[in-house]
Design a protein around this nucleic acid. Structure first.
Length: 564
RNA sequence: CGGGGCGUGGCUCAGCUUGGUAGAGCGUUCGGUUCGGGACCGAAAGGUCGGAGGUUCAAAUCCUCUCGCCCCGACCA
């Protein structure tokens, strides 16, 4: 297969549109892959669509390889099904809602757990029908609060989503692991650097979830990594052991700290390091006040507390006063009757904390001596702390979420009554899993991880073309002769080739070729052709190899095969 | 939703403070010279200055409202 540059719609730009920030966003615009229609809505131009299709082809191959069957679901859904699972009410502005002409409530699909489960509930009757894996590559719509970074976060996007249906947890475990393995193959084939990390199942429900993360400064997520034992987790669930500290032999005493409220202020004032402090934060959970404690050098982790006590909010200044009898800034954990939760790093030692009276702090307070608390992990893990599994120093990185896998259990099969009869004739709920991948995010992540000042450097399996042939002169007879020989042979051998047949100056063609990022460039110049040679150039390294015309096809293929 | 920024030919931007003929570079079209890393010369087309209202003899410029887009945060099924 070959295409002519002059006939294709590839609107490259010399300058970067001013509202692009992320490298992938800038380059996809400049190189003519996408155009923006409105906030969070993107048009994929021929090159961009080719890339997505190549990614989708890989997705399909790996899904079929684990026995998944492709289907296609509507993106317009009746409200009732979403009402049955409760998500119609739980999800707020992020769901696009509308009514049909008969005033029936409808919504646009943000994901397809409900509809897939609905189908299973109607069609699956017996254990003999299980297990099943159904998948689709389908448009999703979410009215994102903040679309950003080009195609990384959009309101309409394509997603590969698959769903597994099993009779029991063992079956789910198997399908979950099959998906994890398939995902590893997919992201490897797409040429990405990635990690599988522990993640928060969130509103998807279920106990276990992992995310696949492509490290990149453009990413929205923070992940924690341990190079030693391989522990990886999203910061939302990551554990860590803060650096241990040596505790001084303080006497329990009040110290005067006029107007000093924050840890930093008191720390500077008393000349005591922040990690010797206990930070006390008051929250209101279902009307019950809860005091949360973290070490002074630690950041309090809201989601971790949420999982323990359920919904809560920060207490107002007045509530702090009426509950604890003191203004924020001078709170200490001693002498209160309310529920107290403390971070695990505080279980022993001697600390500084608020004295529960204005302008005073307590030095020498000891957990489990001067106060008691329920101990939980309540802090945000950060770089420089220790791995919870092997004590090695951990690293933090930003990453793009390119895929996720969830064990759903019966979260959807219960409300939608998706049941089957087991061997014993017993009616049981289907055990489900759901698994997503965002192809556009793969493309963007691939660019974020592979570009230079001149443009995109595609991993070879997802590039829009394998080879770009650049005849420097389109009026030279010998050039045309070699060109035809080359592309016909390459196309015959299954390569996808683009030919820059435009009557442009060489500089323009080189610039565009680098910008577009096809991994192999074959340059046909009159000078080299005089010696019966052509040039094969790597987009990534810019290294050029001259080879005789008679070996051009084989050499080009060999060159391509050696690339990543 | 909170905070910040920006809307002027297709793209990047100047002009706005201090109201008075709407500009530049790139791109596009035509002609010519060029031709191995975004060439050069000449000519031309192309703009309701995001929109509405107001102030004024006069508004891209000042005021009010509004819409859109980007960034930070919150949110993210």
């Amino acid at each position: 297969m070959f295409m002519l540059f002059s006939k294709m719609f590839i609107p490259t730009m010399r300058e970067t549109p001013s509202d692009a920030e992320a490298a992938s966003h800038k380059l996809m615009l400049r190189a003519g892959y996408v155009r923006q229609l409105a906030s969070g809505l993107y048009i994929f131009l021929p090159l961009g669509w080719r890339v997505l299709n190549r990614i989708n082809k890989i997705l399909k191959e790996e899904m079929e390889a684990i026995g998944a069957q492709e289907i296609s679901m509507p993106i317009l859904h009746p409200a009732e099904i979403w009402q049955k699972t409760g998500r119609w009410y739980e999800i707020k502005d992020e769901m696009f809602r509308l009514k049909d002409r008969t005033d029936r409530d409808m919504c646009l699909g943000m994901t397809h757990e409900e509809i897939m489960t609905w189908l299973a509930s109607r069609e699956i009757r017996s254990y003999r029908h299980l297990p099943q894996i159904w998948y689709q590559i389908q448009t999703k719509l979410r009215d994102e609060a903040r679309p950003k970074s080009g195609v990384l976060r959009t309101r309409e996007f394509i997603m590969k989503d698959s769903y597994s249906f099993d009779m029991d947890d063992r079956g789910l475990e198997k399908n979950y692991n099959l998906h994890a393995k398939a995902y590893h193959k997919i992201f490897e084939r797409c040429g990405l650097v990635f990690y599988q990390v522990e993640s928060d199942p969130g509103m998807m429900g279920g106990a276990t979830a992992h995310e696949f993360m492509a490290p990149s400064p453009a990413g929205e997520d923070d992940i924690i990594l341990c190079n030693q034992c391989g522990y990886t987790a999203n910061i939302e669930v990551a554990h860590s052991i803060p650096p241990p500290i040596k505790h001084p032999d303080w006497q329990y005493e009040e110290v005067h700290t006029p107007q000093k409220k924050t840890v930093k202020e008191v720390s500077d004032f008393l000349n005591i390091r922040p990690y010797y402090f206990i930070k006390s934060l008051l929250f209101i959970a279902d009307k019950e006040p809860v005091l949360a404690l973290v070490r002074g050098d630690q950041e309090f982790h809201e989601k971790k507390l949420l999982k323990i006590i359920g919904n809560f909010r920060q207490a107002t200044k007045d509530e702090v006063n009426s509950t604890l009898g003191v203004d924020p800034g001078f709170i200490g954990p001693m002498g209160h009757k309310i529920r107290i939760l403390g971070d695990l790093s505080l279980t022993e030692g001697s600390y500084v904390t608020g004295a529960n009276k204005p302008d005073y702090h307590i030095k020498g307070i000891m957990p489990n001596v001067h106060f008691s608390a329920e101990w939980h992990d309540l802090h945000v893990a950060k770089e420089g702390e220790q791995c919870p599994k092997c004590n090695t120093l951990i690293k933090a990185e930003k990453a793009i979420e390119i895929g996720n896998i969830f064990k759903l259990g019966t979260k959807y099969s219960m409300p939608l009554n998706a049941v089957f009869l087991d061997k014993g004739g017993q009616e049981r709920h289907i055990i489900m899993g759901s698994y997503g991948i965002g192809p556009a995010r793969i493309a963007a992540a691939a660019i974020e991880q592979n570009y230079d000042k001149d443009g995109i450097i595609w991993p070879k399996n997802i590039a829009p073309f394998d080879v770009e042939i650049i005849p420097l002169s389109v009026n030279d007879e010998k050039t045309i002769e070699v060109l035809e020989m080359l592309y016909e042979n390459l196309a015959e051998r299954g390569f996808e080739v683009i030919i820059d047949d435009r009557d442009e100056r060489p500089g323009v063609k080189f610039k565009d070729a680098d910008l577009i990022g096809v991994p192999v460039q074959v340059i046909l110049g009159e000078k080299s052709l005089k010696d019966d040679q052509i040039e094969i150039k790597s987009r990534r390294t810019k290294e050029t190899k001259k080879v005789p015309v008679k070996n051009a096809v084989e050499e080009t293929i060999a060159f391509f095969k050696e690339l990543q």
